[in-house]
Structure formats: structure tokens, C-alpha cells
Amino acid sequence: MQLQQQFIALLNQHQGIVHKVCNLYMDSVTDREDLFQEITYQAFKAFKNFKGKAKFSTWLYRVALNTAITFYRKEKRQPEVLMYDLLPEAQTEANDPIEEQLQAMYKAIGKLSNTDKAIIMLYLEDYSYNEISEVVGITANNVAVKMNRIKSKLKEQTHKIFENA
């Protein structure tokens, strides 16, 4: 019971991480809710083996990303709603140039592969290449190579989005 209380308090404090993973990996609101539920469940299951060697946030990222990548999605029950359309600022500040760039970048990130999304998410969180390599399980050099490739992809994608706009 104490373990449960401790887990709930920690997850409540770090729920932004779970929201981030859900927003990045799922398009519809229902799928995001399902994924949030699943990450919470999986994290609680694994929590008894959390020894505190790593930061709770890093540990939670591992669980959340593992769950998101292997999430068993049901057949689409509703028309797909892209993640950037669900953002509150998406419509209201569409004329703001910074907001437009943010939306373009957001769209571009949404088009990355699942594993690239995991890397970019940790990068946005200011994780070092070594920390990213610990979560993902590849070498820090490999993370650096992948990061360069991801940055080029994003640049290319955002250009395309602006050209089409």
C-alpha cells in the first residue's frame, strides 16, 4: 500500500513525461487515454524493481517509451485526428510566425519513425547523448549520428510544409 502511494505521488509529479509520450505516439484522444492507462499500469508493475539507481524521470521514460512502441492499437474507430490539431494553440495563434514554425516542426516530428521520436523526445528534454543511449540502448556515437540525421529530416520536412502552405 505504501509502495502504491509512493508510486502515485511520483507519477503525479512526473505525469508530464507520460503526456508527452502519449501526445507524440498517438493521434486520437481515445488512443492517448488508452496509452496513458497502459503506461501507468506497466510502470506500477515495474516499480517494485525500481532501485533508484537512475532518476525516476529516466526510468519512467524507459517504461513509457517501451510501452508506446509496443502498444497494441485497436482498429481505428474514428477518423484520424493529427496530434498538432489537438493542441490548444493550433487554431488560436495560427498567424503568429513563431507559432507557425512551431506547428510545422510539430508536424515534422509527428512524421518521424517511432524510434526517432523516442530520441528526439529525450533530446528536447535536454538529455545528454550518453543518457539517451542508456534509455534507448544504442551507443552514444550512434545517438549522435541519428540526431544529425533526424535534424536534417526535420529541416527538410518543415521546408516542405512551408512550401505547401
Binding site: Q4, I8, I17, H19, K20, T40, Y41, F44, Y106, M121
Partner: peptide, 17 residues
């Protein structure tokens, strides 16, 4: 932007376990 608002309460999380 990705984090969004932390909308889940302690009760919500407890119920999800």
C-alpha cells in the same frame, strides 16, 4: 507544447493501476 497540461489527478492515477 508536447507535455500539455498535467490533467490527471492522484485519484485518476490510482484508478488506472
Amino acid at each position: 507544447k508536447l507535455s500539455g497540461e498535467s490533467s490527471k489527478t492522484v485519484q485518476d492515477i490510482g484508478g488506472m493501476l
